[in-house]
Structures are given as C-alpha cells and as structure tokens.
Write a protein that binds this DNA or RNA. Structure first.
Length: 813
RNA sequence: GCGAAAGUGGCGGAACUGGCAGACGCGCGGGACUUAGGAUCCCGUGCCGAAAGGCGUGUGGGUUCGAGUCCCACCUUUCGCACCA
C-alpha cells in the first residue's frame, strides 16, 4: 500500500525527472539497458539496476543532480528468432515486451527518468544509428570486404560462433559450412593501440580491464621476410646465401613472430591455406594435394577449425631461405596457421614452440635447439616436446650466449640491418563486422548504383525505415530477407537519379548499444543525435554499472565509437565511461538459474509477497555487489524483519528527553560506515551495519528517541526508498527524503576516553583490559598484571612488550 | 594451454594498511507473550572438552611477538580467452 502510494506521488510530482539544463553538480548514473525479452524482467536485471539506483540515490542525497535513464535494446537476432518461433511479428512483439518490462521496472522503485528513455527499434532512435554509420563511412572507417561466416545449410542462415556446437548448427544439427559473403566492417583495429593505452587511465573493475587487454591482445615482435627459392636459378644448392646480405627480389613470404631470437631454429615455413601466395609458389607436382587441402579447409566451419587440434597440412614443394642461416627450408600449408592473424604465415621453430613441434614430429621435419634453459646445453635433445621457456641462445651464430630477452631486440636489429625484417606490433583485435543478413535491425544506409557505385544515403533522407513485412524469415541466398522485397530496395540513386538498389543487410545490435548513452540526455531532440551543450555538461558518464558478459564487445565498441566521434570533433572526450563497475551474478540455491532447472526467480512474485523495498534490500544483502550471490527464499524474511522494526521504531519513537549517548555513538559510527560502504558498492556490509544499529536501538525493548531514528531513515532511503519516504513523512517532514541531505557524522562522538585492549601472552589471547586511550605500554603491562586471569600466564620478566594503540598488547615471554 | 579471481561455521557471507576470526542475516536451541504460533520480542549458537584448556580460515612449509591477510610449493573451484605464432 505504501509503495503504491509513493510511486504515484513520484510520478505526479516528477520526482525523478532531472532538470538537465539547470541542475548543478551533474551525476550521470548509467546502467546497461536490457533486452526486453518475452520472459520479462530477470532478477539479474533487477539486481544490476537496484545496485545502480542505490548509488544514484545516494549521490542525490549528497546534493548532486542525478540523471538515471533507462531504455531498451530491442533489435537483434535474439528477438527475431523468438518472433519466428512464436509466429508473431517483432513489430508487434517488441512493444508488448517493452510494456511488460516497463510495468515490472516501475514496481522496482527505480529513480529512472522515463521522460528520456530510448528504444533502439524506434526510427527516431535508429535514424541516428544510421547517421553514425555514415559518419564512419565519411571518415573512411567503414569498408566492405568478403569474409568467412558460419552458414547453416538447413536453417539457411548465418550463425554466430556461439551457435555452432561440434561443427553443427545448435538448433537443427546440420553440418555448418564456411561461406564467404561481402560484409561491412569498421576499422576498429586501427584504434587498437589507443584502445589499449587508454585503459590505464580508466577507473574500471580490474577484471574488465584485464578482459579488454586480453581481447585487444597486443604482441610485440618482428616481421621477417623469407625469399622463396626460384627452382631455375637456385637449383641444386642446399645452402644458397651466406650471411653477409640477403638477396632481394623475387617472391618473399613475410611472417610475424614474437620470438625473432629463435630464427636460427626456423626449419620450415607454414602458410595459412587461404594465403594469397599459395598458388604462386606451389610446385606443379604438389598442386593437386595442395588444392585439395585448401578446398577441405575452406569447407570447414570456423569453430571446428579453431578448436580442432589434430595437426594437418601439405608440403607445397617450394623452399625458402632462412635469412639467418642461409639454409633452404620447406614451405608448407596448414590450417593451424590463421590468415586473420599477423601475416597469415609463420616461421616454424619446432624446438621452441609446442604447435610447431607437434607438426614437425608428425611430418618428420627437422627440429633444432637454439635456446638452452637451465641445465640444458646446445646438444640437449628435444625429445619429448618443445622448450618454450627462457634461457640463452645456442646454435645461433654470433648471438650464442645471449639471454632471450636481450637477444630479441638484437636479432631484430640485425635482421633489419640486412633488410630481412623489422620490429612490429600486432594486435589480436579484428575489424568489427557490422553486417547482419537478417531482418530485425536498422538497415545499413547505403545505396548501390550501377553508374555511381556505392553511395551513402544523404543524411536528410534518414531514417531508412525498416519495412513492416510479413515475410522476414532468412533464406539460403546469403543475403538479408529484405533482398526479397523489391519495392523496398529499388530506389533512385541519390546522386544520378537512376534506378539503384539499397543495401539489404542490417547492422549489428552492438552498434545500437555503442552510443545509446550519448542519446539519453538529448532524447526529445529530433534534429541532432546528441545536443552539444547537454553532452558537454553530462558526459562522460560518471558511473556505469553492468554485467561482465559485456566486458569485451559492448564496452570496446562504445569506446571505439566515442573515439571516432572525438576525432571527428563531435565530442570533447575520448573515453565514454569514467568509472565502470561490473556487478556479479545471482545464482539460485547454489545453481545457475535456468528455465530447464525451473529455478528462475520471477521478481513479480517476490515483490507481491515481500514488497519492492524488502526485495531490493535483500538482493543487495545476499552478497558483495561486484560478486553476486546466492538467492535463497529463506533470506528475505530477515531483511523484511529489519524494515518492519524500522517502521516500529519510527512509530514508537519519542521526542521527550535526549538521545542516549551510547546509541548516539553507534549511530555516528553507522553513518560513517554506510557512507563509506555505498561508494565502494559494499552494499551488503552497509545493510549489516544498519541492522547492527537497529539491534542497538531496540536492545532491551527500549523506546528509541526521535534523534536516534531520523538519520537512520535517511541511511535506509537508497535501499528502501518507498518506506523511507513514508517514514520521513511520518516524522513530520513536508518535503521528500531525497530532497534532504545525507546526515553528517560527528567524529568527536567517536572519540573515547578508555579503550579495551586485547592482551596476548606468548602469542595467545589471554584476556582484555580496559585502559585510558593514552596508555603507555608500561601502564598497559601493569594493568595486565593486575588481572589475575592474565597474570598467571606471565612467567618471569617479559622479553618484549608490544602495544598496538587502541587494539592490543602483546607480551613476549 | 594462457590469463584472472576465489577457497572461512549447518548455509549466505564479515574481517581497513598483518592485531579479539566468524560481524550481519538465515537456520538451529532455549525463554517470554499467547487458546494457538510457522506472528512478535528477548537470550544463546565455530569444533572438542565437565572444566581448566586445547584446536580451528583448502593442503604442506616459511617469515613474525602476532598470519584468513605476507612469502614459497601444491590441491580444488569458478570465470574469460583459446592453434593469436
């Protein structure tokens, strides 16, 4: 009853609508917006939102103007598949889901400003998503190329890597194929260095930073060129060049390695099957097997290829020259070398790389030792595996005896001087493929004209509206379902006016979510994506809270888009999220929640039974916010009891006389504790501290004084906002509790004259003594001796006495 | 394989820079109030022991007056990435 009343008042009074233009000390509290699934709000969502909301409400109590927006990430394959399954069009389904989400979110007592919400499927939103694409296109950061995708021949659709299980489609079980399709990419790899470097400046969860670093995957090493032998001019010799200068000209194979120091042990080269030089170098007698191998590799799906560890390959019949030893070494192709990384070719050093060792063993290629670890020499055999560890160089000419880390730059420099290579840094990060051969997404705003080529849709013609078509099922054409709707894709070329054709692919959902935080403050505006003045005032986001499942892709894409807009002069910052905290996962009775286990928590039921305040507070109490916790029904009662006791304390409190000194001391300690715990997201201990205070307050069924309970209502307010408002009003306040100021704690109240010291004798706790705060160790020792229970353990004169002021006295006997 | 985090009562979890291990809550035991209690309130609750006392933070060592916390070596679990040269 109380919760319903306050929700209505908040709505009527516009309590949660932020005055973005005039508000002082802006605080932008952002939470990752949800995908509005048909199942409704998940407790995991609510856990995250509540955590963010508490932080935001706390900031409001600190006097800041807080903006807490929330929206819906409603495009994407997930919605589309669900729509196909239940046979309802997404344009019908999504508004329904959103309405249900909104109903559930409203009950949760969030401080969300619904006047500035976003829905990524609204043309008023995706118009600007398309605009964003055009900005990247204009800056040369969007380009088209053929790329491999997983293709399910039975479902006739492109699959994400996660949808491929054991080489088969996870839904129908058909063998997945690799197909090459023309797709749009963003040049995020150009930004790899900055995306990595800036991480050092961000106040983010350590795990998230680590995940980003791993994903970007910087490797420092060298590019090295190997000249391919010409069968005519180089015929008949096994050692072709001596080490003064490397012959140039002719075909060269370029490899990337992080271990240039091991070049003397490079006994063969391997190219990825797709490597463009394969045809050119393959000897006629090997052409058949090489072509077969390449065809087989091409048919393999991407996931199998990445996980299949059985080494396969073929000899091309070609040889190249090792620029360090001058020896001729064979060139192979094998699918354990990936075209997407480095140069798509490697120098194999089987002595010091496990994969190369495995391959060399299988195909009987030479294995040389060029690094000797501890207890090893140049002649220690490499019988049972590669030695990838540290050591000194051996069998490496003039570099013998150098340590590995010392040798790396020296060998690189030596190779560079001989024009055989140069130091280089590679990143694992690939360009971002944003094309989706699907229906449920924003159409990519490009038009193909026979006369003018690729033409971007003029900005004043945005949005390119996604048509409402009944037939949106993917087919096996390899293009989006939109390609079947001629009346939609046939348009005049914006440049020459001749009949042209729209791009029929839609963009990745991650693009929708890569900029939504820029949109929120500017929401009603339909003339710009984001208002410059509001953006300057409110961004970057002060605190962003979300799940670590987005630690890599979403956060990286959002950072990239922000950098691009910064470089285009549209933003004055290049990092969107100053502070990011990843929340934990909620499990249920020790197990992950899942529909099949039937242990999914439906927030509605719990809110019905216990109230939103108790539910919120319980979610925050069950474990550290950044770690998550185990949801158990039994636990809610304790939190509910606490709120009931708070209610009773306010109802029964008296104005007569004065507050109790001891209770007052505890109150101020609690104010300090809670005020420190909330910014640290240590919500569980903040709640524990308030409960502890409640125990003090009510001990022995005493009647609390008004001054003892009033500040507690404020401390509880971020967690249980409805009841706090009600109690605040019961205490006689005419304005809301969130317009009050967080209580200040008085340090002088925490100072004490006497203190209890723990006394240890010989390292064991033997008792306690109460002494003045200013006690010296001699005085404390005397006090300990005066205590019979302690004194009996002090045999003879102590060797040493250690006093830790305010805490303990350690007597060494 | 690489990277990261974590192992504490019957359970969820506390413990700042080394300083009373087990806060707070659940559960359990006892009591009060009650026709009743699965409501409410109070008290108790790591293990062994009658007590004195002893033992206790995954395992084994170490540093220290003192270790859940620091160091070394293991074991286990969870998460991320994964043939990335």
């Amino acid at each position: 009853m109380v919760e319903g009343r306050w929700r209505k008042r908040w709505a009527d009074r516009g309590t949660h609508q932020t005055d973005l233009e005039h508000g002082e000390r802006p605080y932008y509290a952002l939470m990752m917006f949800p995908y509005p699934s048909a199942e409704g709000l998940h407790v995991g969502n609510l856990f995250a939102f509540t955590g963010c909301d508490i932080y935001a409400r706390f900031q409001r109590l600190q006097g800041r103007t807080v903006f807490e927006p929330l929206g819906y990430d409603a495009f994407g394959i997930h919605s589309e598949n669900h729509a196909l399954k239940v046979g309802v069009h997404p344009m019908e389904l999504i508004p329904r889901n959103i309405a249900n989400f909104r109903r559930q979110l409203d009950r949760a007592g969030l401080m969300a400003d619904w006047s500035r919400s976003v829905d990524t499927t609204d043309p008023a939103y995706y118009r600007w998503t398309q605009w964003l694409f055009l900005q990247l296109y204009k800056q040369g950061l969007a380009y088209k190329k053929a790329a491999a995708v997983n293709w399910c021949p039975s479902d006739k659709t492109v699959l994400a890597n996660e949808q491929v299980v054991d080489g088969r489609c996870e839904r129908c079980g058909a063998m997945v194929e690799q197909r090459f399709l023309e797709q749009w990419f963003f040049r995020i790899s150009d930004y790899a260095g900055r995306l990595l470097g800036n991480l050092d400046t961000l106040d983010w969860s350590a795990t998230t930073l680590q995940a980003q670093r791993n994903w970007i995957g910087r490797s420092d090493g060298a590019r090295i060129r190997f000249r391919v032998l010409d069968p005519l001019t180089d015929a008949g010799s096994s050692v072709v060049a001596v080490t003064t200068e490397v012959r140039t000209g002719g075909t060269e194979i370029e490899v990337f390695t992080t271990r240039p120091d091991t070049i003397f042990g490079a006994t063969y080269l391997v190219l990825a099957p797709e490597h463009p030089l394969v045809d050119e170098i393959t000897a006629p007698m090997q052409a058949g097997v090489v072509a077969d191998y390449r065809a087989r590799a091409a048919r393999q799906d991407l996931v199998t290829r990445r996980t299949n560890r059985e080494k396969t390959g073929e000899f091309t019949g070609a040889y190249a020259v090792n620029p360090a030893t001058g020896e001729m070494i064979p060139v192979w192709i094998a699918d354990y070398v990936l075209m997407e990384y480095g140069t798509g070719a490697i120098m194999a050093v089987p002595g010091h790389d496990e994969r190369d060792f495995e391959f060399a063993t299988k195909f009987e290629l030479p294995i040389e030792r060029v690094v000797a670890g501890e207890g090893q020499t140049a002649r220690t055999p490499l019988a049972d595996g590669a030695y990838p560890g540290d050591g000194v160089l051996v069998n490496s000419g003039e570099f013998d005896g150098l340590g590995v880390s010392e040798a790396i730059p020296k060998v690189s420099a030596w190779l560079a001087a001989r024009r055989a290579g140069e130091p280089v840094t590679h990143y694992r990060l690939h360009d971002w493929c944003i094309s989706r051969q699907r229906y449920w997404g924003p159409p990519i705003p490009i038009i193909y004209c026979d006369a003018c080529g690729t033409v971007p849709v003029p900005e004043d013609q945005l949005p390119v509206v996604l048509p409402n078509v009944a037939d949106f099922k993917p087919d096996d054409s390899g293009v989006s379902p939109l390609a079947r709707h001629e009346q939609w894709y046939r348009v005049p070329c914006p440049r020459c006016g001749k009949l042209a054709r729209r791009e029929t692919d839609v963009s990745d959902t991650f693009l929708d979510s890569a900029w939504y935080f820029l949109r929120y403050p500017s929401v009603p505006r339909d003339d710009v994506a984001f208002d410059p003045a509001l953006t300057r005032k409110w961004l970057p986001v002060t605190t962003y809270i979300g799940g670590n499942e987005h630690a890599v892709l979403h956060l990286l894409y959002a950072r990239f888009i922000t950098m691009v807009l910064h470089d285009a002069g549209r933003l004055d910052f290049e990092e969107p999220f100053t502070r990011f905290r990843a929340h934990g996962l909620i499990i249920r009775d020790g197990a992950k929640m899942s529909k099949s286990k039937g242990n999914v928590v439906n927030p509605d039921e719990y809110i019905d039974e216990w109230g939103a305040d108790a539910f919120r507070t319980y979610l925050m109490f069950l474990g550290p916010f950044e770690e998550g916790g185990d949801f158990r029904d039994a636990g809610i009662s304790g939190v509910r009891r606490f709120l009931d006791r708070l209610w009773a304390s306010v109802r029964d409190c008296s104005d007569e006389g004065a507050a109790d000194d001891e209770v007052q001391r505890k109150l101020h300690a609690t104010i300090k504790k809670v005020g420190g715990d909330i910014p640290a997201l240590s919500y569980n201990t903040a709640i524990a501290a308030m409960m502890e205070y409640m125990n003090t307050l009510r001990r022995g069924e005493r009647t609390p004084h008004r001054a003892e309970v009033e500040p507690l209502v404020q401390l509880v307010a971020p967690f249980a906002p409805h009841i706090a408002e009600e109690l605040w009003e019961m205490l006689g306040h005419r304005t809301g509790v969130f317009d009050s100021r967080w209580p200040a704690f008085d340090p002088s109240l925490l100072a004490r004259e006497t203190v209890e010291l723990v006394v240890q004798v010989g390292g064991k706790t033997r008792g306690k003594v109460t002494v003045p705060t200013t006690v010296t160790s001699d005085e404390a020792l005397a006090a300990a001796r005066a205590d019979a229970g302690i004194a009996k353990f002090i045999t003879g004169e102590p060797k040493k006495v250690i006093l830790v002021p305010g805490r303990l006295l350690s007597i060494v006997v």
